[in-house]
Design a protein around this nucleic acid. Structure first.
Length: 479
RNA sequence: GCGGGUGUUGCUUAGUGGUAAAGCUCUAGCCUUCCAAGCUAGUCACACGGGUUCGAUUCCCGUCACCCGCUCCA
């Protein structure tokens, strides 16, 4: 195999660790996998839960004017007519028979000053359109790629039973706007937050878990008085940025991509992407869009039900505008993994400087006199396992018993890890690879003076702390 | 989906028309008073499906998956 294998990129190193340590697996791997679908293992599922919890806490719990929702994945098909996903969400593509390149048909036409001809579900290229790459006019007919997964509701598979897996969670919020408004006693401005799976039959899933066909979104629809769009849009961009910092993505690793006005959808007044510098390029984690009242108006039109809000202060009746921060959980998880992934060369014997391995040298052998360490530097809040507890020696029952006691106490509060196997250094390194921020070791001194060693993942420094102070100390560090 | 590349165990590699080897990891035991130590034993692989053949991991065809480019955007 792979005699001329390219040097591995950082993404390969991250993916390899994710598999080795139980973060991410290929779905149904024993059958060869399925393109665009991924499973999260013991560490990955806890990592994702921590990300969701951090979002839910920051968006729903800590804002008294934001409430939660958990809408169903399959909704009435008319929802997708109203949202524009049926008819508008499929991209007709053309292929060049000469140079084999593929283009979005409407982009290609637009670039050449023409418009794509649409006749119901059929598309046609206008005269004279040429390949943007090689200039050939030998192009295929525009073909539609429906990005929504279809299924049937009930036992009969006829056209009237067709339904769709939601391609975004947002429409569940819009469709329940009136019910939430009526039951939550909220006044404008207020928001509805939701976390859930969405599905898109992507043409080409890529970049590990980055573009998957099944993915998880965290979306807030923040409803506002028309005319306040700009200030609320700015507010949420800032608010979201500070959240990213709090989960371990520093501002220096992020980029704001403000869409120019002329590129916005006709109903939108602003859209800013939060992007992360992945190993494969700067790519979007979240889009924060000011969408006007497009969605609610459409649902009012298609359902015939009023989406208006009565403003008690001004005695006005209007359809609220909305600002939508919409984030991808899987993308954030991948960004956090990439950001946290670190290889170090540490001097044997403990003397000298630790060398942080540059991206280009990842996976290489440590130089003479050094040994390699792989560590995931998660912030404690996000780390899947918070504390690992070790008896210094396995064959000393008094150590094991005391350690077990401490482990069981800590387990009441966080996911913890119990490990008695192998030398203590080996056990520390195992925890480094899953990003456990704290190690607690019980030794013979513990039995004498009731103190334990606490070992820090990032610095490998150790200090002694009284057993009584351990819990409050960790509480403070982990929050 | 199109074009190109890749596919042997958890990882890194070896090898063969007669079903596979090594190191590390992992598991168990012994030992061990703080950073992948040592000793003993053990588990685990030729992506899948056809074809050729007495016999295929090896040759041929197809499929799948992953990576790169086109494309895409949560």
């Amino acid at each position: 195999m792979a005699k001329d294998k390219k040097k591995t990129s950082k993404l390969d190193s991250v993916a390899s660790l994710c598999k080795r340590r139980g973060f991410i697996f290929q779905t149904s791997e024993i059958y060869g996998g399925l393109n665009g679908f991924w499973d999260y293992g013991p560490m990955g599922s806890q990592l994702k839960k921590n990300i969701r919890d951090a979002w839910w806490q920051d968006i729903v719990v800590k804002n008294e004017n934001v409430v939660g929702l958990d809408a169903s994945i399959i909704m009435h098909p008319r929802v997708w007519e109203a949202s524009g996903h049926i008819g508008g969400f499929s991209d007709p593509m053309v292929d060049c028979r000469e140079c084999k390149k593929r283009f979005k048909a409407d982009n290609l036409c637009e670039e050449q000053g023409q418009e794509l001809i649409q006749d119901g579900k059929k598309f046609q290229l206008p005269e004279g359109i040429k390949c943007a790459s090689c200039g050939s006019d030998d192009l295929t007919e525009p073909r539609s790629f429906d990005l929504m997964f279809k299924t049937f509701v009930g036992p009969v598979e006829d056209d009237s039973a067709v339904a769709y897996l939601r391609p975004e969670t947002a429409q569940g919020i819009f469709a329940q706007f009136s019910n939430v408004l009526a039951t939550s006693r909220q006044k404008l401005p207020f928001g509805i937050g939701q976390i859930g799976k969405a599905f898109r039959n992507e043409i080409n899933p890529r970049n590990y878990t980055f573009r998957s066909r099944e993915f998880e979104q965290m979306e807030l629809e923040f409803f506002i008085k028309p005319g306040t769009d700009e200030e609320w849009h700015k507010y949420w961009v800032q608010k979201r940025l500070s959240w990213y910092e709090s989960v371990g993505l520093p501002l220096s690793s992020l980029e704001l991509d403000e869409h120019p006005k002329e590129k916005l959808a006709h109903y939108a007044s602003a859209c800013t992407d939060v992007a992360y510098a992945f190993p494969f390029g700067v790519q979007e984690l979240e889009g924060i869009a000011a969408r006007g009242n497009f969605d609610l108006s459409r649902h009012q039109e298609f359902s015939g039900k009023s989406m208006e809000y009565f403003d008690q202060e001004t005695n006005e009746r209007y359809i609220p505008h909305v600002v939508e921060p919409s984030a991808g959980v899987d993308r954030i998880a991948l960004a956090i993994l990439c950001e946290a992934y670190t290889e170090e060369w540490i001097p044997k014997g403990g003397e000298g400087e630790v060398i942080k391995v540059e991206d280009a040298d990842l996976g290489k052998r440590a130089p003479e006199g050094y040994e390699a360490r792989t560590v995931l530097k998660f912030v404690p809040k996000i780390a899947p396992v918070k504390v690992a507890v070790f008896p210094l020696l396995k064959n000393k029952p008094e150590l094991v018993e005391k350690a077990r006691e401490i482990f069981e106490e800590l387990q009441e509060y966080w996911p913890c890890f119990w490990d008695v196997a192998g030398a203590i250094g080996r056990r520390y390194r195992r925890q480094d690879e899953i990003g456990t921020p704290f190690g607690v070791t019980i030794d013979f001194d513990t039995l004498e003076d009731n103190t334990v060693t606490i070992r820090y993942r990032d610095t490998m420094k150790q200090e002694r702390i009284s057993c009584d102070e351990l819990l409050p100390f960790l509480m403070k560090k982990i929050r």
